[in-house]
Design a protein around this nucleic acid. Structure first.
Lengths: 149, 149
DNA sequence: TTCTGTGCAAACTATTTGCACGAAT
DNA sequence: ATTCGTGCAAATAGTTTGCACAGAA
């Protein structure tokens, strides 16, 4: 699974570059290994949402690495608040660097496009009508985009 | 995976009982086998959303059957418009009989409760704001219910 | 030197597919 | 007598776990 066609709205990242993350990792007592750096490098290079498989393939870094290590690193980075993952349909989860604010998405089941969207109004409506405190960050909204509908 | 705690709103089913479905199956050139009847029996008995695993276990019918057959039957029944399935989080998909109207759900990530909800307003809002024609029938909305939030 | 992180193999969950036999029509 | 559907086994995708060794600290 390659990078997901993420739409516009590039948001400022919480960690601007690899060195900033490296510092955070160090501060948290983590070692700075080659695979770990490669995972981060891939995430910065991809500049969007990618699958573990894609990172492991080395498509973005030129160096392939073990899928297991990728998963373990992504998990660690997620605990650290550096990355997050989204379930974009049936396939593998996709991972991306954490930016400022919420990370809510609309997924088009037609073309597969993943569009970041500010869904505060939608959240407020669901809260008002059903008392539900919803999040679209982990399981996004699915449907058909304007082009596909 | 057992039956999902589905909330109120029992909707009239498109097929009221096993015999009605049997007729539809026949009309479509399908055979009426024992496993097929058992799958339907389980779906009617469960009266909500259940996993293939649950049906295969025979918990509701007293007769266990092969998971493969369950999946194949559910697939067939889905083609026929008798059942539909929903992805309620990370685990297995859950299947249920088709009722009248839409089947939209709110899933509580806290207690696992699955609440049918009329989300027309929400759909309209997303359509107005983003041009997206969304559906919450296959991938429902996730969040925390009033009790868990 | 110590202990964390890696790579490989194997387990695991959810689902699908191939194939020979049995049963519904 | 035909097929269709079943059950079993094996394949598949995505992810996790166990374990011995390598390499950061």
């Amino acid at each position: 699974l390659g990078p997901v066609t993420e739409a516009p709205a590039r948001r400022p990242l919480r960690f601007r570059d690899l060195d900033e993350v490296a510092a955070a990792l160090r501060a948290d007592g983590n070692r700075l290994t080659t695979p770990r750096k490669l995972v981060l490098q891939a995430l910065f290079a991809a500049d969007g949402l990618v699958s573990a498989e894609h990172i492991a393939s080395g498509a973005d870094t030129g160096v392939a690495l073990d899928l297991t290590s990728v998963y373990r690193n992504l998990e660690r980075l997620e605990e650290l608040g550096v990355v997050r993952h989204v379930h974009v349909g049936h396939g593998a989860a996709v991972y991306g660097l954490v930016g400022e604010g919420e990370h809510e998405y609309l997924v088009c089941d037609g073309c597969g496009k993943v569009t970041p969207a500010a869904l505060d109004e939608v959240r407020a409506l669901v809260k008002a009508r059903f008392g539900y405190e919803v999040r679209f960050t982990h399981f996004p909204i699915h449907g058909r985009c304007a082009d596909c509908a």
